[in-house]
Write a protein that binds this DNA or RNA. Structure first.
Lengths: 234, 234
DNA sequence: GTCTATAGCTTGATAGAC
DNA sequence: GTCTATCAAGCTATAGAC
């Protein structure tokens, strides 16, 4: 809980691609930190562990990212832009190609949910770690609220705008509460904690994000209709 | 990641109610730890902080709970039994009073979900902290899986048994995936991270668990019907 | 850019007086 | 049961040689 105004923080990426592994080193550190933070959280990881897993010296971590919190933010930021831009692009594309009047909740959710699942499955280990990191951050009461809101909410606002096109008579409150239900399911799934595997006796696998997405789309669409239906007066 | 076999751990409650504040002290420590762990996680809390907030000496923390992990487990365990027994009682009562053939998904979920929301609202700050702790633990990939499974899965198995009474033709896989969607929504809600408040521009409040429960019951019932419907061949 | 070395603190945990 | 005192280990972060 110390104030984080380290004078050397925010040093950012070095000006130009230097000799050997300049950007390499930086990404090596980010990859290691991403992995460890996603498993143990901010306080559960030491700079030394990050440096060791990245195969570099601890001093280099500070050289690139300043204080520990700067490292965490850099990890979180690295993929946040891609993450959200791609989802917004996907739903915009869906709206354009389908036409505003022909959209379905299923189609819209499919466009919105599939990208993160695909990255986690096929984007390499980094994306899987990042997914888990997002899941954990979203559940964190002190840190999660602000961080998640800043980077993730704009994409969600766009999603809700498009849902309104499909359900013009839905009340705003209903839409937000419904999204809240979807959000919880999404982040729990991305965490891949393995709990579902145990609970189901191996019948379901947390890592089977393809199937998870299929269920989530249908489950959410029905849920939205149930609580945002035009017949509802509340 | 150290092995946790501190010889003094598991000292348990002192044999009999001693003089002054024996059990009091123990609960004071548990309350403080519950509060702090729920906000900052296991590694984000120091024994010293717990002792300070409890108004006792650090040595006392070790006297009662051994190693730090022993303290965490004690916090987690203290309310786990109540938490799950009450929910199982509630759904069993619902089944008994309604009759196996007349049960609805809405009624069953109402019985299952309302107790934790009520505790968090009216059980004092301790229950609210505990809810947040459960939410965070559930999202933790390394620690969450095993801990949650051990204490929480039996109750959920009973819930699924009763759902089968309502939807006899539903496939097991479908039921588990559907529950997974519900579980995510539940834990995110219990975390009360305040993100929904920001996202909705104040239209919804994370702390309004009464409303959250109303929405969740209807949303989940519709979701279950959509993915576990008897008309489904998958 | 990268490393060595180290300052300066905080941590978990225990021993032992009372 | 409770407190004082303390230790060894680990931590973040920086200074400075190369």
């Amino acid at each position: 809980m110390t104030k984080l105004d380290a004078p050397t923080a925010k040093r950012g990426r070095p000006p130009k691609a230097r000799a050997a592994g300049a950007a390499d080193t930086r990404d090596l550190i980010l990859d290691a930190a991403e992995d460890l933070f996603s498993k143990h959280g901010f306080y559960g990881v030491t700079i030394r562990e990050v440096a060791r897993e990245a195969g570099v010296d601890t001093a280099l971590v500070h050289y690139y990212f300043g204080a520990k919190r700067g490292l965490f933010d850099a990890v979180f930021l690295r993929r946040a832009e891609v993450w959200n831009n791609e989802r917004v692009d996907a739903i915009n594309r869906y709206a354009r190609e389908t036409g505003l009047d022909s959209m379905t909740l299923e189609g819209l959710f499919e466009a919105f949910l599939r990208p993160p699942f695909q990255w986690s499955l096929k984007g390499g280990p980094g994306w899987k770690h990042y997914s888990a990191l997002v899941a954990q951050t979203n559940a964190n009461p002190t840190f999660g609220g602000e961080t998640m809101a800043r980077y993730f909410d704009p994409a969600i606002r766009r999603l809700i705008e498009l849902i309104k096109q499909i359900m013009p008579e839905a009340a705003e409150v209903d839409l937000y509460w419904a999204y809240h239900n979807l959000s919880g399911a999404l982040t729990l799934t991305l965490g891949e904690t393995g709990r579902l595997d145990r609970l189901s006796g191996g019948l379901c696998r947390s890592g089977d994000l393809e199937t998870a997405g299929d269920y989530m789309v249908r489950y959410a669409a029905a849920g939205f209709r149930a609580v945002c239906g035009p017949a509802k007066s509340r």
